[in-house]
Design a protein around this nucleic acid. Structure first.
Length: 731
RNA sequence: GGGCGAUUAGCUCAGUUGGUUAGAGCAAUUGUUUUACACACAAUAGGCCGGGGGUUCGAAUCCUCCAUCGCCCACCA
C-alpha cells in the first residue's frame, strides 16, 4: 500500500496529476473498442454533448461549475456504459459583453474610447483580452475534472465557425429568411447598439402619468408617461366602438407649434386594440418610438417622424426649440408648456414597466433604424426533412419548426414544465433583429456598392460595418463544432447531439435559437433532450453576483475542499430546473465524504494484502446477501442515472457507501477478517474488495478524482488500468 | 394582465406512478480517544408536510379555493 494512504486524502496533491493521466490516456476522445458494459448497448451507440461555451469575459463562476459537474457526470456515465462518447469544449466570444468589458478597462486605464483607438487596434485589444480569458477558463474547466475532448475545442469566433456563420447567413438570405429593413428596433443609447427583444429587460417603477390635450381646440384628452415623445405624434387612436370619440374618427387636426416646437398633423384613427377603460380611452400615436404605435402606423399609413436619435437626444424633426435636448430636458419643457397653457388636465402616479438593457441597465429607446432581421413567419420548403411530423416538400416557417420540435417529442425538455414556457415564448415571437452596431463579432457578410448588395466580397465594394448578434453564431454550436457546413464524419456520427444541458435562463436566448438554426440548416433537431439546471444562490437566496460579493468562487472552493467535494455539493439535493443554494458547509461535508472513501479504501487494502486475486473464492451466504443487496441498490441507481436523476443517484451512493458499507458491512467483517477459519476470512475479504470496487466505479462519474486515484493504487490494478473507462456495473 | 414554481425538522433540501411508524445532510444534545477514519462512531431530540374544503379504505403526494414568497412572459398608451 502506498504511503499516501496513511494520511488523510489530499485533493490538491492528487487532482492535477490525475487530470494529466486522463489527458495522456486519450480516452477523452471517443474511441472504438472501449469496453461495453452491457450487451444491450451496441458498439456504435453514441453519446454526444456540446459544452455551452462560457463567455470569454473573465473567470468561471458557480453557474459554470454546476454545468460542468452535471455534464461530466452524464459523459462519464455514458462512457462507462461503453458508448462512443464525445463532449466538445469551446468558448463564446459573447460580442457585446466582451466588447463593453474591454471598453471599460481601456477607458479606466487610458481614458480612451474605441473610436480613439480605431477598429483595428481596438479589436486587437479585445482579442488579447479574449485570449487571456480563454486560457483562464480552460484551466479552470480542467480543475473541475471535465472530461472534454480538447482536440475538438472550438471558439464561436474562430475561422471555422466564421465559415459556418457566413454559410448560415447566405442560406437564410437566399431563402428570404434574412432581410434588411427600416423598422423599429430596441436601441440602447449607452451600448450604441440594437438589442433583440430577449435582450430587453423590464423593471417596474413608479412613473408620472400625464393627461392633456395637444391644444385648446383639440377635442380629445390623451395620457402618457412620456410627454416628450408627443413631439412626434401623427395620430390619436380610439376604439371603433367608443361612443365618445366615434364622431371624430377620420378627422385630421393641425396643431401649430405644439409645445412651442413642431407643427403636428394628428389624424383620429380607429383601432380594435385600444382599451376603452384605460386612461382616457384615446392614445396618442408616436409611430417612431413605440413598437405598438409603429404597427398601428403601418396599418394606417401614418407618417413616421423620428424625434429621438441614437444618443437619446431630440432630433431636428422636432423643431429648433427642442433639437439637441436630452430626453429629460425635453420632457420638462413640454410639461412646462402644457401647464402654462392650461392643457394639462391631471398628473397621477402609476406603476410602469421601464424597458432596460440587459447588459448596462440603461433605458431602451425604441426607434426606427435600418437593420437585418430573421423572419420567423416566412414559409419555406423543406428539402430533406429529418424533422418528425414535417415532410420533405412541405412549407413551414421557423416558428412552426421550433414549436413542432418539442410538440412532436423529437426534443424532450427536462423538467417538462419548461415546455409550456417555451411554447408561450414562440407564440409571442417577433422577427429577430440580428445586426449589432459593435465591432467585436462576426461582421455581417454583405457588401454594398451604391444601392446594390452582394453576398460575396468584391473589389471596391464595402462590407457592412455591423456585426451579428452573438446568439446567431452560438445558435449553430451543435453542428458548427462538428465541421458543418462540410458533411464531416463527426457531423454524421455525433449529430443530433444526445443532450443539451444548460441553465433555464438561456432557454430563449440559446436553446430556442439552436432549434431554429438546426431546423432550417440541417432540417433536423440539434439535440434529443434538453436538461435545464437552476441558478445558484447564496445562503440568503440571492443570485450570486460580483457586486453583492456573495459569490462562491469555484476555484477557491476546489483549493479548499477539492473538486470532487464541490461537484457533489452542486449535484446532491438539486433537481433539474430548481435553484440551488450552495454553502461552504455543504461543500465541506462532501470533503469529509471524500476522506471517508479514502479511509475505507485504506481499510480494505490493509486487510486484504494476503488476498489472492487469481484464486477463486467461495462466497458465503452472509456475503451473498451483501452482494444481492448492493445489486438491488445499483438497479435503482442505474434507473436514476438513465432518468437524469443524478441528485438521487448521488445521494443513494453517498448513503450506501457511508452508512451501509462503512458503518455496517465493514464493521461486521472486522471479526471475520481476523478469523482463523480460512473460508470465513477469504469470503469477507472478497466481499469488501467487491463492494469497494463497485462503489468506486459507480461513484466515479460523481467524484472522478479520488476514485481514480484509489483505483490507480489498488492492489487489483497492477496494470494501472484507468477507472474512467471501466464498465459500469452490470445489473 | 397571463403563466410557472416554492411553502416538509433550527437551516438547506429529497420524497419517483397516493400505501405501513414522513427521509437525508448540516446544525444541536449526550456519550465514546474501540488501531480504517475525531474530516470518526454510537445514541438522543426535533415535523397538525403553508391554510380551508373535497376525492379515497388510505393524501406530503390527486382535485379545488385561499395566503405568503420568488421567477418568467406581455404593445395598458
Amino acid at each position: 500500500m502506498d504511503e499516501k494512504f496513511l494520511k488523510p486524502y489530499d485533493s490538491k496533491e492528487t487532482e492535477n496529476n490525475i487530470y494529466k493521466l486522463w489527458e495522456k490516456s486519450g480516452f477523452f476522445r471517443p474511441k472504438d473498442g472501449q469496453p461495453l458494459a452491457d450487451s444491450k448497448i451496441k458498439k456504435e451507440e453514441v453519446f454526444s454533448i456540446v459544452l455551452p461555451p462560457p463567455n470569454v469575459t473573465g473567470n468561471l463562476h458557480t453557474g459554470h461549475a454546476i454545468m460542468l459537474a452535471i455534464e461530466d457526470i452524464m459523459v462519464r456515465y455514458n462512457r462507462m456504459l461503453g458508448k462512443k462518447t464525445l463532449w466538445v469544449p469551446g468558448t463564446d466570444h459573447a460580442a457585446i459583453a466582451t466588447q463593453s468589458k474591454v471598453e471599460k478597462e481601456i477607458y479606466k486605464k487610458e481614458k480612451k474610447n474605441r473610436h480613439d483607438l480605431g477598429r483595428e487596434e481596438f479589436l486587437k485589444r479585445v482579442n488579447e483580452y479574449a485570449k487571456n480569458s480563454h486560457d483562464t477558463i480552460v484551466n479552470q474547466t480542467k480543475k473541475m475534472g471535465a472530461s472534454l475532448d480538447w482536440s475538438r475545442e472550438a471558439f464561436t469566433l474562430d475561422e471555422e465557425r466564421g465559415k459556418a456563420v457566413n454559410e448560415a447567413f447566405l442560406q437564410m438570405y437566399n431563402a428570404e429568411l434574412i432581410y434588411r429593413k427600416h423598422r423599429i428596433v430596441n436601441w440602447c443609447p449607452k451600448c450604441q447598439s440594437t438589442l433583440s427583444d430577449d435582450e430587453v429587460e423590464h423593471e417596474e417603477q413608479k412613473a408620472k402619468f400625464y393627461t392633456f390635450k395637444y391644444s385648446s381646440d383639440f377635442p380629445i384628452y390623451i395620457s402618457t408617461t412620456r410627454p416628450e415623445t408627443k413631439l412626434g405624434d401623427t395620430a390619436v387612436a380610439v376604439n371603433p366602438n367608443d361612443k365618445r370619440y366615434k364622431k371624430y374618427i377620420g378627422q385630421e387636426f393641425e396643431i401649430k407649434k405644439f409645445a412651442g416646437g413642431p407643427d403636428l398633423k394628428i389624424k383620429i384613427i380607429a383601432d380594435e386594440n385600444i382599451d376603452l377603460e384605460f386612461g382616457t380611452g384615446a392614445v396618442g400615436i408616436t409611430p417612431a418610438h413605440s413598437h405598438i404605435d409603429y404597427e398601428i402606423a403601418q396599418k394606417n399609413n401614418l407618417p413616421i417622424i423620428k424625434i429621438i436619435d441614437e444618443y437619446a437626444k431630440i432630433t431636428n424633426e422636432a423643431g429648433t426649440e427642442y433639437s439637441g435636448l436630452k430626453i429629460k430636458e425635453a420632457r420638462e419643457k413640454v410639461l412646462e408648456y402644457l401647464k402654462a397653457n392650461g392643457l394639462l388636465e391631471k398628473e397621477e402616479e402609476i406603476n410602469n414597466n421601464l424597458s432596460i438593457c440587459y447588459r448596462c441597465n440603461s433605458p431602451i429607446e425604441p426607434l426606427p433604424s435600418l437593420q437585418w432581421f430573421v423572419d420567423v413567419n416566412k414559409k419555406f420548403k423543406l428539402k430533406n426533412s429529418k424533422l418528425k411530423g414535417l415532410k420533405t416538400g412541405q412549407d413551414v416557417s421557423l416558428k412552426e419548426i421550433m414549436k413542432n420540435a418539442v410538440e412532436s417529442k423529437q426534443i424532450e425538455i427536462i423538467p417538462d414544465r419548461f415546455e409550456k414556457v417555451y411554447y408561450h415564448w414562440i407564440d409571442n415571437l417577433r422577427d429577430w433583429c440580428i445586426s449589432r452596431q459593435i465591432w467585436y463579432g462576426h461582421q455581417i457578410p454583405v457588401w454594398y456598392k451604391e444601392e446594390k448588395i452582394s453576398l460575396e466580397e468584391k473589389k471596391g465594394w464595402e462590407q457592412d460595418p455591423d456585426t451579428l448578434d452573438t446568439w446567431f453564431s452560438s445558435g449553430l454550436w451543435t453542428f458548427s463544432t462538428l465541421g458543418w457546413p462540410n458533411n464531416t464524419e463527426d457531423l454524421k456520427t455525433f449529430h443530433p447531439t444526445s443532450v443539451l444541458e444548460t441553465g433555464y435562463d438561456i432557454l430563449f436566448f440559446w436553446v430556442a435559437r439552436m432549434i431554429l438554426m438546426s431546423g432550417f440548416l440541417l432540417e433536423d433537431v440539434p439535440f434529443k433532450k434538453v436538461y435545464l439546471h437552476g441558478l445558484v444562490r447564496d445562503e440568503k437566496g440571492r443570485k450570486m453576483s460580483k457586486s453583492l460579493d456573495n459569490a462562491i468562487d469555484p476555484i477557491g472552493a476546489i483549493e479548499k475542499y477539492g473538486a470532487d467535494a464541490l461537484r457533489m455539493a452542486m449535484i446532491i439535493g438539486v433537481g433539474p430546473g430548481n435553484d440551488t443554494v450552495i454553502t461552504d458547509e455543504k461543500i465541506k461535508a462532501y470533503k469529509h465524504f471524500a476522506n471517508k472513501i479514502w479511509n475505507a479504501s485504506r481499510f480494505v487494502f490493509s486487510n486484504t494484502e494476503d488476498f489472492d486475486y487469481e484464486e477463486k473464492t467461495e462466497i458465503l451466504d452472509t456475503d451473498k446477501k451483501y452482494v444481492d443487496e448492493l445489486n438491488e441498490i445499483l438497479k435503482d441507481i442505474t434507473k436514476d442515472m438513465n432518468g437524469f436523476k443524478f441528485y438521487l443517484a448521488g445521494e443513494k451512493l453517498y448513503h450506501y457507501f457511508w452508512h451501509r458499507f462503512a458503518d455496517v458491512i465493514i464493521e461486521e467483517t472486522k471479526l471475520r477478517l481476523k478469523s482463523t477459519d480460512k473460508k470465513e476470512k477469504l469470503s469477507a475479504q472478497w466481499t469488501i474488495i467487491y463492494i469497494l470496487k463497485t462503489c468506486l466505479k459507480t461513484l466515479h462519474p460523481f467524484m472522478p478524482f479520488i476514485t481514480e486515484e484509489i483505483w490507480q493504487n489498488a492492489p487489483w490494478n497492477k496494470n494501472k488500468e484507468i477507472l474512467m473507462i471501466e464498465k459500469w456495473p452490470k445489473i
